[in-house]
Simulated assay, not measured.
Amino acid sequence: MEIMKYQVGDVVKMKKPHPCGINEWEITRTGVDFALKCLGCQRQVMIPRIKFERAVRDIVKKAEGK
C-alpha cells in the first residue's frame, strides 16, 4: 500500500462532489483533522484524517515550493 503525503496547498479530487458541483478541494490544514476549502464556492470544512484518506481519489496539484 502506498503512503500518501499531503501538504497544505495541495489540491485533491474527492470521490463525491460538494453540493455546489465541484469535487476539487485545497488542503488548508493537516493533522488529525484536515481543513479543506472547496474550489467552487470557497466553503471550508474540517473532516477527520481517516475519512479524508478514504474519500481522496487523486492529488490534482501539489503545493508550490515544497
Rank of each mutant, 00 (worst) to 15 (best):
M1I: 04
M1P: 06
E2R: 11
E2D: 13
E2I: 11
I3W: 05
I3A: 14
I3S: 12
I3G: 09
M4D: 01
M4E: 05
M4C: 00
K5S: 13
K5L: 09
K5I: 12
Q7M: 03
V8D: 06
V8L: 00
D10T: 05
V12H: 03
V12I: 15
K13M: 12
M14V: 07
M14Y: 07
K16L: 08
K16P: 00
K16H: 03
P17D: 10
H18S: 09
H18C: 15
C20D: 12
C20H: 10
G21S: 06
I22T: 11
I22S: 06
I22G: 01
N23V: 04
N23M: 11
N23R: 15
N23E: 12
E24L: 12
E24Y: 12
W25R: 07
E26L: 11
T28W: 00
T28D: 00
R29Q: 15
R29I: 01
T30Y: 01
T30G: 00
V32M: 05
F34V: 01
K37A: 14
K37I: 10
C38M: 03
L39Q: 07
L39G: 06
G40D: 08
C41A: 08
C41I: 01
C41E: 04
Q42E: 08
R43P: 00
Q44Y: 04
V45R: 08
V45I: 15
V45M: 03
V45Q: 05
V45E: 08
M46D: 09
R49C: 10
R49Y: 09
I50Y: 11
I50Q: 14
K51E: 13
K51S: 15
E53V: 10
E53D: 05
R54S: 08
R54H: 06
A55G: 09
A55C: 09
A55R: 12
R57N: 12
D58E: 15
D58S: 15
D58H: 10
V60M: 07
K61T: 11
K61L: 13
K61C: 04
K62A: 10
K62H: 15
A63F: 06
A63R: 13
E64T: 13
E64R: 15
E64C: 06
E64H: 11
G65T: 09
G65M: 07
K66Y: 13
